[in-house]
Amino acid sequence: MSSSGATEEEMEIPEGYAEIVVVRHGETSWNASRILQGHLDPELNENGRQQAAAVANRLSKEPKFNAIYSSDLKRAAETAQIIANQCDLKEVILDQQLRERNLGDLQGLTLVDAQKMKPNVYKDFLSHKIDQEIPGGGESLDQLHQRCVSSFRKIANQHRGERVIVVSHGGFIRELHRKAAPNRKLEGKIQNTSVNVILISASKNHWFIKKWGDTSHLQGIGALDSGFGGDKTSG
């Protein structure tokens, strides 16, 4: 796994693999206000649009991408459209399977209010049991994991030998890391518009992390650390 290196994008894709560049959406006002978003649908804030423009500019300088996929939630779809425009990709393929974890009864609450108003639900949210569902229709981590893996296997199978972009969410991307590096603890958070590169062979069920957590394109965008989510409370 690498965190930097401009020549890596030029390396050939191993036979039978797809190279998937995974980008977390830009910042929203709900991120900045520490509100749990889940499947609710806030738009990017101004800082988020600047972040999206920065990652779009960065990706436009890399070798050609064959397609771009995105969660259909506005914060991801808008980020993806900004990238698509800059990278000369005609269509953003929207997919509900790329959404953030459904947080059930906690969606729309700040983290503080969630602890105060729904302590039992919040406890389930932070449970170490990966099969613990969140009341109100929320997903367990295991359900989220299965959704992540299934959607990425499908994309990888359709794009063998190709490079594609996927724009998704912090909790979703954390589960990709768990699949690709099950024995490596994920430190820190998934920053807004961070770039993560995964090689996937759908036929061999082999996942390999090529790059993780690269935010070098965000230098000079001051509100990077204000973005909430991307850690174990992501949503």
Rank of each mutant, 00 (worst) to 15 (best):
G229T: 14
I198L: 01
D95P: 10
G170P: 07
F172E: 00
S70P: 02
V21G: 02
S203K: 07
Q97C: 11
E10Q: 11
R99T: 07
H145P: 02
G104K: 10
E139R: 05
Q146Y: 02
K61D: 08
N31G: 10
L111A: 15
Q107C: 14
H177W: 14
H25K: 06
L199G: 05
S168W: 05
Y69P: 09
K204D: 07
K116E: 09
D124H: 05
G170H: 04
T193K: 01
E27Y: 07
A76Q: 10
D88Y: 10
A156W: 13
V164I: 00
A18G: 14
S194A: 15
P14F: 03
A114W: 09
T233N: 13
N57Q: 14
S71G: 05
F228T: 07
S33Y: 14
N102L: 06
T193W: 05
M117L: 13
D214E: 11
R58L: 13
Q97P: 01
Q146V: 00
Q81D: 04
D113R: 10
K204Q: 12
T233V: 14
K204W: 08
F208R: 00
I209R: 04
R49A: 00
H159I: 01
G48W: 00
C87Y: 05
I200T: 09
H128Y: 03
G5R: 04
T7I: 13
R184F: 05
N85T: 12
Q115A: 08
S226Y: 08
Y17R: 02
N45Q: 01
N66K: 07
L89H: 15
H177D: 02
F228H: 06
K116Y: 05
N57E: 14
S226M: 09
Q81R: 12
E8P: 00
E46F: 11
R99S: 13
I35W: 03
V195Q: 04
E10A: 15
Q107T: 15
A181L: 07
S168R: 03
G38Q: 09
D225N: 06
R101H: 07
S3N: 13
W212N: 04
E12P: 13
G222N: 12
E19V: 03
H25N: 13
L109H: 01
L176V: 03
H145Q: 04
W30F: 12
A54E: 00
N45W: 03
Q219C: 15
G227C: 09
K185C: 01
I190F: 07
I35A: 04
V21Y: 08
F172R: 01
P63N: 06
A6T: 09
C87T: 13
G16Q: 10
D113A: 12
